[in-house]
Design a protein around this nucleic acid. Structure first.
Length: 564
RNA sequence: GCGCUCGUAGCUCAACUGGAUAGAGUACUUGGCUUCGGACCAAGGGGUUGCAGGUUCGAAUCCUGCCGGGCGCACCA
């Protein structure tokens, strides 16, 4: 990595072990910056004096001369102006030869990490909240892979909770669902929403639901048969969503498969006194640790969520021999996760488990809730965005076939959904406004895709010019070209930074800025009509930009479109 | 009540985790296609970073106290 080399050489020349580099806020100040506060403190000097002294020393250093056109002290900052020609000669060939691999590093040392996300519930709606989870989890998954981890993406589907019984109860008493044309898995979700409403004013229903629950857990009888059938609908529906979004899991765990092991574990923990009986239920009393109380088994004997989760936590390590287990779960379950980890610790097991929390998605009208019908389902959102993008695309490409228009619009739809979820920091609640999501300019997936498509169009037209001879990088001297080169050089750092902090939003931000720079350049500079030396160099620059965009898009799970 | 968390331009968000004049998008006003794709670009206005203290060379960022929003705290997941 060229920037790494430069930084390393500066440190070596200064004789310091580590230095905090940053990028100046404005290009006039320099391309790379070293703040001298720390070093000045240890040597008890005025930072500005130190910067000045260092600037003099480094300017005289012959080994650094190929890199810099100037090294200047600006107050307490030591600022470096990198030679454009040097940058270009390093960065462009590096990107060209690394291709899709540009930006990868080995900091993960091939450690095995399991990451669990998209934890759907069968018999329930799949809504925009799940979309944030899956977009975020999948981006982190690929980000970690780019940082040299051996990542195992898995999903855990809850097919055995009380919500299943509620849905089945309503499904049997209200026959309208079975007759509708929509996918069955989707209808189950609608049915669940109505079930909770109906149950609120139906005490007899609750008894019926409890009976259904016990029958399912006992794995016998009509309710169990119905469970088998309907569960399959939901799973098929999830599969179709994953296919549409381009998500692949190495393995999918189901609650019903681990719940028996969980019950055994509960018995053991009960014997050890880690779990206790209370008010007819089985609980973990974690008050001594300031973690409250976690109910494990209901007083009617049916299992709660932690039963399976406790078993699964260790099962993951046993079966896949992993070094770390990451759970992408929304922040509201933070306390639950602390409780879960504490129980595992108390039972003598201390796994490397990490709860990767993100804030939830809410609606302008308030919290999403199946109970009040205040949800936006995946299907609804996808259809609305798709419809609008189809119209936009059709308007721009009168001669395209309907099939092609729809294909492009669909790819843009997937990109838009993911990007909207990823561009906001994970610690922020997303108040999901459908109208905002239906706008395609500014900081959006369409803006990025459009910028990319336009550059690709130039490359297609300039293919002949790129065939002959090596580009002369010294012609890349304009400020905007240098800004682009610097941005390209920074890409590996962005991947590293976004990976170690689990923040895909840093990557979305970077890619947006890269496209802004390139759009600006595009308008100011003519590429195809430039003189042949310039043209060749500029095409090489553009090619590198599209390569980095491709790489970034891939990490975020966005589709790559040559035309739109 | 206890705990966690957030509060930055009219709105939606950034700010390299303590550093330079707090930046983008959007909305608003104005300008740009005989030029590689106008889902684009340029310019402008818009800020006491919720409030008050503190820590230090330096605070949107750290500590304390208020104010306001959100979430979580025993049979939902």
């Amino acid at each position: 990595m060229t920037l790494e080399d430069i930084k390393f050489n500066i440190q070596k020349a200064l004789g310091v072990e580590s230095a905090l580099f940053s990028y100046p806020p404005r290009p006039e100040l320099g391309d790379l910056s070293l703040a001298c506060f720390e070093a000045a403190k240890t040597s008890r000097q005025n930072p500005a004096d130190l910067a000045k002294a260092w600037a003099g020393r480094l300017s005289a250093n012959k080994e650094l001369q190929p890199y810099f056109q100037e090294i200047r002290a600006v107050g307490p900052y030591l600022n470096f102006f990198i030679k454009s020609s040097y940058l270009a000669a390093q960065v462009l060939p590096a990107i060209r030869s690394a291709g899709d691999e540009y930006g990868r590093n080995q900091s993960g040392q091939a450690q095995k990490v399991m990451i669990e996300y998209s934890n759907g519930n069968t018999h329930k709606e799949y809504h925009v909240g799940h979309l944030r989870n899956i977009a975020y989890g999948d981006a982190v998954n690929r980000l970690l892979a780019k940082n040299g981890y051996q990542v195992i993406p898995v999903s855990y589907i809850n097919d055995f909770g009380i919500h299943v019984a509620k849905t089945l109860w309503n499904w049997q008493r209200d026959k309208v669902y079975a007759e509708r044309p929509e996918p069955k898995g989707y209808l189950l979700g609608r049915c669940y929403a109505k079930a909770t409403q109906a149950l609120a004013e139906n005490p007899a229903g609750k008894v019926a639901v409890a009976a259904i629950m016990q029958e399912i857990e006992g794995r016998r009888g009509a309710s169990y048969q119905l469970w088998l059938e309907t569960r399959r609908w939901s799973i098929d529906y999830f599969d179709s969503i994953y296919r549409e979004l381009g998500i692949k899991f190495t393995h999918i765990f189901y609650e019903n498969e681990v719940v028996d092991a969980g019950r055994k574990l509960v018995d053991e923990l009960l014997e050890k006194g880690i779990l206790v009986r209370s008010e007819g239920a089985i609980i973990a009393d974690l008050e001594p640790y300031g973690l409250g109380v976690l109910p494990i088994i209901r007083s009617d004997g049916t299992a709660l969520y932690p039963v399976a989760d406790l078993a699964l936590a260790s099962e993951k390590f046993r079966r896949y021999d992993i070094n770390q287990s990451i759970y992408v779960i929304d922040v509201r379950q933070s306390l639950y996760f602390k409780q879960l980890i504490k129980i595992l610790e108390l039972s003598g097991y201390r796994p490397a488990v990490r709860h990767l929390a993100y804030d939830f998605v809410t609606l302008p009208e308030g919290m999403m809730s199946s109970r009040t019908g205040n949800v936006i389902t995946y299907q609804e959102l996808r259809d609305k965005i798709f419809e609008k993008l189809t119209a936009e695309t059709a308007q721009r490409h009168r001669r395209w076939s309907e099939r092609r228009i729809k294909q492009v619009a669909f790819n843009l739809t997937v990109s838009t959904i993911k990007f909207e979820m990823l561009k906001i920091g994970a610690d922020k609640t997303i108040t999901f406004n459908i109208n905002e999501a239906l706008r395609f300019d500014g900081y959006t997936a369409c803006y990025l895709q459009y910028g990319y498509a336009r550059l690709r169009s130039i490359l297609r037209k300039g293919w002949l010019a790129r065939l002959f001879g090596r580009p002369d990088f010294t012609t890349l001297s304009v400020a905007k070209e240098k800004a682009l080169l610097l941005a390209l050089a920074r890409y590996p750092e962005v991947i590293a930074q976004a990976g170690t902090t689990y923040r895909p939003s840093e990557l979305t931000q970077y890619l947006f800025e890269l496209v802004q720079l390139s759009n600006d350049y595009y308008h100011e500079t003519n590429i195809l009509k430039a003189a042949s030396r310039e043209r060749r160099a500029r095409l090489a620059l553009i090619a590198a930009v599209t390569q980095v965009l491709q790489n970034g898009f891939t990490v975020l799970g966005l589709r790559i479109l040559e035309k739109m």
